[in-house]
Write a protein that binds this DNA or RNA. Structure first.
Length: 221
DNA sequence: AAGCTAAGCAACCGCCGCTAT
DNA sequence: GATAGCGGCGGTTGCTTAGCT
């Protein structure tokens, strides 16, 4: 059997349109099936990733707001590198986006810290939530921001508590109560009210066949 | 203006867990 | 209960863009 070649690398506009079309048609679940039926020479995983991180109309675009940034920091303190979990609490942001944000954020922090350290003394904490740490300046940077750095120690401690918490998804009260409430309300509303296919993407304007534009997708759910 | 570096982002890889058979 | 297939997740890589010298 001749294995059909799999396309890699950046997605073309045409591929995007095709994927959006078929996701609208069949839903955003069976990615392997979607990949095959759409005729895209991509893996199911690749299709999912493209949809989740880029094409999904529910995604926010643009820079993180200060509120979101704070939230990321808080949640990372709490959960460590559980990006998808963190993303679920920040509507419109993907795990990949948050992960990328964190890396650049921590890289900056690490650099600032190194500057300070060279002028003063090593081994100081540089996280909002870190109080003390046994990790010294000598720890390599990659290790630091990839693993959650000195926060990780705390995180490990908190995990036990949090895992229990997670069982019932009961959120306790934080210093950011207001934001939390907003976010949670939003999330609830979304899970309850939001149809699988939210708002219509502008991409639809390029739909291959005009007949689909007037199609009632709700009848498909 | 050109070259270099850092930041930002998109995409891939490998592992893990869940589910159907 | 074993196993294969798939989806989801976190880590990593590589390309592009922006900013600086």
């Amino acid at each position: 059997m001749v294995q059909e070649e799999i396309r890699r690398g950046p997605w073309t506009e045409q591929e995007d349109l095709q994927l959006v079309f078929y996701v609208k048609l069949f839903g955003d679940r069976r990615w392997d099936f979607l990949a095959k039926v759409s005729g895209l020479k991509r893996t199911g995983k690749s299709c999912r990733l493209r949809w989740v991180n880029y094409l999904n109309p529910d995604l926010k675009r643009g820079k993180m707001t200060p509120q979101e940034e704070r939230l990321v920091l808080e949640l990372h303190c709490k959960w460590g590198n559980r990006w998808s979990r963190i993303a679920r609490k920040i509507p419109g942001r993907t795990d990949n986006e948050i992960k990328n944000y964190w890396r650049t954020h921590m890289r900056k922090k690490a650099q600032e810290q190194r500057k300070k350290a060279t002028s003063i003394s090593p081994s100081s904490s540089f996280s909002n939530c870190s109080s003390s740490s046994s990790i010294t300046h000598e720890e390599n940077e990659r290790n630091f921001y990839d693993t959650g750095g000195i926060e990780q120690l705390q995180v490990e401690e908190q995990k036990k508590v949090n895992d229990q918490e997670q069982a019932g998804e009961s959120m306790k009260v934080y210093s950011m109560d207001e934001i939390w409430k907003d976010i949670e309300l939003l999330e609830e509303n979304e899970t309850i009210n939001k149809p699988i296919m939210g708002s219509i993407s502008p991409l639809w304007d390029y739909c291959p066949d005009p007949m689909w534009k007037d199609f009632d997708w709700n009848t498909f759910r």
